[in-house]
Design a protein around this nucleic acid. Structure first.
Length: 586
RNA sequence: GGAGCUGUGGUGUAGCGGUUAACAUGCCGGCCUGUCACGCCGGAGAUCGAGGGUUCGAAUCCCUUCAGCUUCGCCA
């Protein structure tokens, strides 16, 4: 019995028609003389009815059927009797009286309910992922993913982009994340690396004259996992020749508009606001600011430069800063809650956390006794403090204060319920530093990656103050999540060599590891730039999920394993021998 | 590598030094012709993640370990 309709294709339009449905038994309600089954297929649910008056044989078969049995059912579509319509079902006005049923396969009782909003150990869901994915919300996530990726392809196709696949077996490169390695059988002792991103290939495609490239690219990074980080994830990777930042912003904003319109039927407003890296760090303590709420960080360094209180003035004298957040309305926090915030501050690297509770007529604080009345007054003014507010201070290096207050700001937002899931707040972050000084390695490392072009006006600084050079890099941030990032690249050999030098690569090392890039730049490399989007993360926000695992059909657990396939796994001695590998004793 | 939370019938929880290990749901059997989380009656189902220790006695306290989740480091 082959299906003629999907469950939700059927409506009152089909009354009287004979149809065949294929699907799974969602639930069964046996009334003795009458049996109802909610039949589920990919489209949704419809009620089918078994009565001995209609067909004795299928009625008795329905008595045997259990949840998740796979069945085919043939019967006539009827309007439901009055008062028995179910407004919760798309097909709630109709039902099908089954004249013939076939059990296509039986099923064991599943280890968890096949329904939305279940509260089950995630390990179990992952072990039986094929059952987990039967749940409507998971199916919808994968459907959304399909739609969004299709919009991306359609949109970029319209814009004359060419989709090109690049190798999965590629070369290990220094810097960046830890590589996943694949041993070469043909070349004993040598390894491929799985790509962390198709960065070099896409630039070489620009040299090849593709002009506009994109790829739905799988990327691999062997680092510890998080709710929004998997060892393999998918990027929309793009690169264009003869463009500047504005071309890219415009292209992407229009694409996002389409993605949200066609993916969620939601209108977003473009262009997106922009913020400098510097402002983001100062006001939000973070290079991916969540602008869905205020609680901005206020700099008090100048104000407090000469105060007696050593925690403040001392931090400033040794080159640091003092900044504060006015947690509006948090003056009612119990001492314990404030102390908890202080503990968090310490976890994030602070030495402590000063605070002031602003009351109606008085201030409560362990620190005001170290400040003059006038200084306190100035602080309150700077923070626009009102009775009922809680003021939180950070005094340390600019970097530490930003990290501490940035994280406390997020924590306060969670406590005050300011993180509205439905609201969408895009922002471009611009003006990242090109290089960062790595204290441990005693050298500069690329903040974005080593092919990022410096801002032209900073070129001179490369020789005198490399740390002060800005990059032509940009991130797209959505609700505090970095969903995309890219840059205008270097396309000249001499500049690229200069950056390699600053990163501590010798001429020989640069030649050995990136000779192909340097050489390619000598054959008429066009100016180019691009961007890449974390598709999993974008979808996570679109579907209002807490983890990208819910948007990936078969994700890994936090320990980078798969309970269903039981990966990774050991391999045979023979395989190891072929690869010239030996497992070292632990 | 560090920190936190969790682990008890299939599932979700309760129990926190002496219980016949409780409840809900699911499962199995019976009854039921308008349910849609159907209802009613009955039943089965747990060596309390694993190992060790303390104790007359451990699901409960301690140590170790495993797994999951969150997070710091890490993630150009």
């Amino acid at each position: 019995m082959k299906r003629t309709h999907n469950a939700t294709d059927i409506s009152s339009q089909n009354v009287g028609q004979e149809v065949v449905l294929n699907g799974w038994v969602n639930t069964r309600r046996d009334h003795g003389g009458l049996i109802f089954i909610d039949l589920r297929d990919r489209s949704g649910i419809i009620q089918i009815v078994f009565s001995p008056d209609v067909n004795e044989e299928s009625f008795h078969l329905a008595e045997q059927v259990r949840g998740e049995y796979v069945v085919a059912a043939k019967g006539k579509v009827s309007l439901r009797p009055e008062e028995t319509e179910n407004p919760n079902l798309l097909t709630g006005k109709v039902e099908i009286y089954v004249e013939e049923m076939e059990v296509l396969n039986r099923a064991k009782t599943p280890p968890f309910y096949i329904e939305d909003n279940i509260d089950v150990d995630e390990n179990l869901r992952l072990k039986y992922r094929y059952l987990d994915l039967r749940r409507p919300e998971m199916r919808k996530n994968l459907e959304l993913r399909h739609r969004v990726v299709k919009v991306m392809r359609d949109y970029l196709d319209e814009k004359a982009f060419i989709e090109v696949e690049t190798p999965i077996l590629t070369r290990s490169t220094p810097e960046g994340a830890r590589d996943y390695l694949v041993p070469s059988r043909v070349h004993p002792g040598e390894f491929f690396a799985l790509p962390q991103s198709p960065q070099q290939y896409k630039q070489l495609l620009m040299v090849a004259g593709m002009e506009k490239y994109f790829q739905i690219a799988r990327c691999f990074r062997d680092e510890d996992l998080r709710a929004d980080r998997q060892p393999e994830f998918t990027q929309l990777d793009m690169e264009m020749s003869f463009v500047d930042e504005e071309d890219i912003f415009q292209l992407i904003e229009e694409m996002m508009l389409r993605i949200f319109k066609e993916g969620l039927e939601q209108d977003i407003s473009i262009p997106f606001p922009r913020i400098s890296y510097e402002d983001a760090m100062k006001k939000y303590g973070n290079d991916r600011p969540d602008l869905r709420f205020g609680l901005e960080i206020v700099d008090l360094t100048e104000l407090l430069r000469d105060v007696e209180f050593k925690v403040f003035s001392g931090a400033i004298k040794s080159g640091g800063v003092v900044r504060a957040i006015n947690a509006r309305g948090c003056g009612s926090f119990a001492r314990r809650e404030i102390d908890k915030l202080g503990e968090m501050a310490v976890e994030y690297g602070a030495k402590g956390m000063a605070w002031i509770v602003v009351g109606e007529n008085e201030l409560k604080s362990p620190i005001i006794k170290f400040l003059t009345e006038e200084e306190v007054e100035q602080i309150l003014n700077a923070l626009e403090a009102k009775p009922g507010d809680l003021l939180i201070f950070g005094a340390d290096s600019a970097e530490t204060v930003a990290r501490v207050l940035g994280n406390l700001r997020m924590e306060l937002a969670r406590r005050l319920n300011l993180l509205e899931k439905e609201s969408l707040n895009f922002v471009w972050v611009l003006g990242f530093p090109l290089l960062e000084y790595d204290e441990e390695a005693k050298r500069y490392v690329a903040d974005h990656h080593m092919f990022t072009s410096p801002c032209l006006e900073d070129i001179e600084l490369l020789d005198t103050d490399p740390g002060g050079v800005k990059a032509r890099a940009y991130d797209l941030v959505l609700n505090g999540v970095e969903v995309g990032g890219g840059s205008i690249r270097i396309h000249r050999r001499d500049w690229q060599e200069k950056i390699f030098g600053l990163l501590g690569l010798t001429v020989e090392e640069a030649q050995e590891k990136f000779g192909h890039m340097l050489e390619a730049f000598e054959y008429g490399a066009p100016p180019h730039g691009g961007i890449a989007f974390g598709i999993d993360r974008l979808l996570m926000i679109m579907s209002q999920r807490q983890s990208i695992r819910d948007l990936i059909a078969f994700p890994k657990t936090q320990s980078a394993s798969c309970p269903m396939m039981e990966t990774p796994s050991e391999v045979s001695m023979r395989q190891l021998r072929e690869l010239s590998l030996k497992i070292r004793d632990k």
